[in-house]
Nucleic acid binder design. Sequence first.
DNA 1: GCTGGCACTCGACTGTAGCGAGTGCCAGTC
DNA 2: GACTGGCACTCGCTACAGTCGAGTGCCAGC
Lengths: 340, 340
Amino acid sequence: MGLDDRKLAVLRAIVEDYVATQEPVGSKALVERHQLGVSPATVRNDMAVLEEEGYIRQPHTSAGRVPTDRGYRLFVDRLSRVKPLSPAERRAIERFLVGAVDLDDVVHRTVRLLAQLTRQVAVVQYPSLARSKVRHLELVPISTTRLMVVMIADTGRVEQRLVELPAPVPADDVTDLRRLVNEKLVGSQLSETPPLVQALVDESAPHLRPAMTTLSTVLLETLVERHEERLALAGQANLTRGGLLDFQGSLRPILEALEEEVVLLKLIGETEPSTTRVLIGDENEFDNLRAASVVSTGYGPGSTIVGGLGVLGPTRMDYPGNIAMVRAVARYVGELLAQN
Amino acid sequence: MGLDDRKLAVLRAIVEDYVATQEPVGSKALVERHQLGVSPATVRNDMAVLEEEGYIRQPHTSAGRVPTDRGYRLFVDRLSRVKPLSPAERRAIERFLVGAVDLDDVVHRTVRLLAQLTRQVAVVQYPSLARSKVRHLELVPISTTRLMVVMIADTGRVEQRLVELPAPVPADDVTDLRRLVNEKLVGSQLSETPPLVQALVDESAPHLRPAMTTLSTVLLETLVERHEERLALAGQANLTRGGLLDFQGSLRPILEALEEEVVLLKLIGETEPSTTRVLIGDENEFDNLRAASVVSTGYGPGSTIVGGLGVLGPTRMDYPGNIAMVRAVARYVGELLAQN
DNA sequence: GCTGGCACTCGACTGTAGCGAGTGCCAGTC
DNA sequence: GACTGGCACTCGCTACAGTCGAGTGCCAGC
């Protein structure tokens, strides 16, 4: 069990070399490229131990070693050194994000930026509605029995929904409805609205009741139950880098998983605030993504978290680099949101 | 040059068989599977002519024949018989589209439906802003110097944009601004707004001028110049069907092209109304998509066209089937939009 | 103008052999 | 006791030769 410093150094060297070359790394190449101060034979002995402990494995008898998921995990937890961003990368981030005109724009720019910087698939979750506060509710009459409800959240998200009213409602009543819902709901956290919405119905004047009832149902549906999470995705083409070696030859399962919003949300949806999360290989719960790793973190204005973002790629990825990028981008986006 | 009926029948048979089996088709197999009424030797003679004319080719000397892009073109133009949808498909379409609650929902359901039905990559363009009319403009004060402009179009699209005002504007003035822009712009086609927006500035009261000027600039920018086309995409995983045979082994260029909105818009953006367009192989203008074909059409409420939708796949695709599906889905979506 | 027959082509597959990267083990050294 | 050099061994990869067979082009005959 005792992994002394040199064995750890060997593991680190294996991970770094394998990530860089994408080829199983042998003992001789290792001592040549790293200053380990010992002979290949010694390294081989260390490798035998590392293999026994499950940190590396041999694709076939006469090949070099490749890290296992467990090996990557150890590497990420204890061996990787933080990789500071290059000035060029820093500049790229800034340049990319200035000039964004609205939330959609911010999210799209961010996801493309992340994909470009990390050369992986990037995912950005829109600010979660549950973590947003209502800034304004607008009711726009489409016809006498139809209303479009537009909700503007403080995070910049705008959601709309068509409401079919049970009976025609005159314009004045719409004005009243608008005033009422805004008075009650503006400023409140969306996850806490259900009782407020209920109260709305109870407190409204009798002639507004039927309309308000329908309206409240829709509000609850849109805002709470069918909690509308949205995502942006970019960089799928990066999956094809590294030939067909990664992902054991088939992109199929990966592409399928990427089409499932639920899956992506589980992967990058933030859990504990402000931690960067790394899921390696089968640590995630989806069979389709056994061969993939995910680096994700939360973002938001200031120290609050309103959504998640991250990248997905082969287990053989540059963890320190990607972690640094994901963090940096999240921080910049947070600052950007704070300005609004 | 004379392609008699039998030669055309041979071409049709080759296309159908190749699409079905994905393997070069030989003369013997052809006469066995189709009632051509002649011997393999005769078919071989016909094939020789078809090859000379550029409709089919041989991957290698001792292999069967494969249609060329030109062959598919002839097939699509003159040989394919319309393939009616199966009742199951018809039902799938209906079931898929009922219950859509807003435009986003409609578009997402549509694109997934198309991908599922055709087993190809599906693309749906949101109703084009240029073809929409303004239904309502809402100005929501974020702070005294910041306004969120929300535009609701008759096609259901909702666009928002943050406006930085040159000086604080009191709430009453915002109300005036709101009234003014709505009076002028509601009901007008977006492509025709520039003069109207200009007039807005000229006609507004002096104390509203500065704010209105900024506002009009943003409106013009958002609505006209940066003409915000949006797209939804689904079914990328379908690209991996047919192993790596299609797309000559690399999905890379295809995936890259699919990330470029501009490319997709050019492909499925409607041109002549109500035609179904088929682009085969290098008929499209993008190098990355030389190995792909696109079937697309316009859709919209009634007989007007507000956007395009379509599918993209290998040149070896079921053209009649895909054409039928694309048309059917477009028609259903049109009906759905007409109801709103 | 169609057909059967036939020689020919050439990719796909199989089996064999040699190469070499990389290993595990062991005896020897510090 | 830890490290090292040496050595036999494994096994994937590549090259090469040989066989098979699907499919063709061509031609003589009906």
